[in-house]
Design a protein around this nucleic acid. Structure first.
Lengths: 342, 342
DNA sequence: ATGAAAGCGCTAACAT
DNA sequence: ATGTTAGCGCTTTCAT
């Protein structure tokens, strides 16, 4: 009744060969180890016959490698992260690595927990979008020789590998695009989060406004996942109170989505009077009416670089000095930022 | 330089105790195994001091259990699946299980591969939304005593545990709601997929239409993730050619999303003339303008039942006859299905 | 060309 | 109350 899964030893016994032989054949090292063709054939036939599945836990214990990578982002259902994730998965797959996805929700406790879980389970590397406060845990990870690459945002205090984009330029370009479309009272709606990428986006917006001789108008929402509704109310108030407001630049795609909902709630027609650009693209933006312009990050480029660095670290066993990449994104112009006909 | 992670043995040596003692303390069995309080304290202090992290790969090899569950759905970024996933994760966490999420994309090859990967890695159980053709692999899994629960859809040929909803009733209710709102020419847009849940939704729609003396009007799109664009063109043609069409009932939330985009492309105002209901809710629907009505599945209920059954199977080591649950959903009425003022 | 055997880090039955 | 030790299933060095 209890059909325990056959082990290498069981197979060796049945075939009257040693476990060594079976192991070599299993790992395709038969030729290399000069095992006779007929024996190889015999073993392979049997492995296939019983549909043998090696116990990878045992293999990992022995080899010290799980061939598992972890991709830990703020929210894997976010268009940007899932897109990069998918690309990373493909590249990993071709190199015989699997990748595990998880969402930190930008929550420190949760992230620490995830890092711990995967570290204990001996994964081979981490790609992490670091939430605030995670610095020490990241340092510990690196300390213990674990390959770690930061993504989307860096931690200035740590000198480690990262792949990010030029947030300042992206925000500046986006703002300038709205200005070029003739908008004058452009607001910037962002999150009150002490992280570099947010500061840079804000700075980019302010720079563009100043250069154009326009007055910045900024709303900083408290960062708190649990009160999405209340922050939308704040947005609505802000929009209502901003005199002559004619355009909004949102600092993230989820802010835009919440904002669009708020705009719709204020007045069904309001969206047609406002210029909108969002930082970070989203599948939603193409579908919305009007379609929403967005500053898109170079996902393929990011994924490729991330994996190039990762494989390098996996080989070099953690010497080599950190690679720190700052890539450029592209502004995708859609209906929402077109000049309004007066 | 190379700071190998300390093992239980290393710790035992440093403290001049046996590995057993350390192991017992580590696993909180100190009291139970009558280890003196002072020794327990001493060991615990040291474990904390060096920030010891046990090698869970070794533990799993020894115990035969990884305390990992896999939640394998069509697309984890889909609102419905991610919501259930999150609930499952919470419940698992409280019971000291971790859950790994992955997307099958309803692709047979990919799913087989994922099953194999996780099976080899000795996960403790699977919750699977089965893609077409996966029957045999599921049977093998169950055969090998792996706890498996089907979710969202069943495979009629296999007598195993599953948790699904009453698709027929859900589709019938949704259709009736449109009929009650005064719509007469209600189309049903679905996927041409030979799976029970799709057949049931179609049947529910047809039943409602027939009972109301209305004529069904069905569009079946080919199932093929790679040609989303072309299927939208088909939808647009269908909508244009359906004389006097005044409402659409979409069979899935992603069809709705694509459909809404198509409707927007045909004519910006068209959406205001059509009644819309979608099967499966989505965060998008609350945000769209107008907000979209949807037949929502009882996510909490599903998650709780899924985990109740899973834990039971984990304990019983696979005897017990299969539990087969069919739950009811709820129609969430929003703007899109309101009677149109003429 | 093939096999014996050590050992990865942990748990737990058994011994003392 | 604490220690000794046998494995879990696999890889790989060394021996033959």
């Amino acid at each position: 009744m209890k059909k325990k899964r056959p082990s290498l030893k069981d197979i060796a016994e049945v075939l009257n060969v040693s476990t060594t032989t079976v192991s070599f054949v299993l790992n395709g090292k038969g030729k290399e180890k000069k095992i006779s063709d007929e024996l190889i054939a015999k073993v392979e036939a049997y492995l296939k016959e019983i549909n043998y599945k090696p116990n990878l836990v045992a293999r990992s214990l022995r080899t010290g490698s799980t061939r598992i990578l972890v991709f830990m982002v703020e929210d894997i259902s976010n268009h940007f992260f899932s897109k990069v994730g998918r690309l990373i998965e493909d590249i990993s797959y071709k190199n015989d690595y699997r990748v595990l996805f998880c969402s930190t929700e930008n929550d420190l406790k949760r992230t620490q927990d995830l890092i711990q879980v995967f570290h204990e389970r001996q994964v081979d590397g981490f790609i992490i979008v670091p939430p605030p406060g995670i610095q020490e845990d990241i340092e510990n990870l690196i300390e213990s020789e674990m390959p770690v690459i930061l993504f989307d945002r860096k931690i200035p205090e740590i000198d480690c590998d990262y792949v990010i984009i030029n947030n300042f330029e992206g925000a500046k370009n986006s703002s300038e695009h709205l200005i070029d479309s003739g908008f004058k009272n452009i607001a910037f709606i962002t999150i009150d989060l002490d992280q570099v990428q947010m500061h840079d986006r804000e700075a980019g917006y302010i720079a563009a406004m100043n250069e154009a001789g326009l007055t910045p108008n900024i709303l900083k929402l408290p960062y708190n996942t649990s009160t999405v509704g209340s922050s939308r109310e704040t947005m609505k108030e802000f929009i209502n109170n901003s005199k002559d407001l004619d355009a909004i630049f949102f600092a993230t795609n989820y802010l835009s989505q919440s904002g669009l909902k708020g705009i719709h709630q204020i007045d069904t027609q309001l969206i047609d009077k406002l210029g909108i650009v969002s930082f970070d693209d989203s599948g939603f933006f193409e579908m919305y009416s009007p379609t929403i312009s967005a500053f898109a990050q170079p996902v393929e480029d990011m994924a490729e670089n991330l994996m190039r660095i990762m494989f390098q670290k996996l080989k070099n066993k953690g010497n080599a000095k950190p690679e720190q990449l700052v890539l450029e994104g592209t502004l995708v112009k859609r209906e929402s930022s077109k000049a309004k006909v007066v």
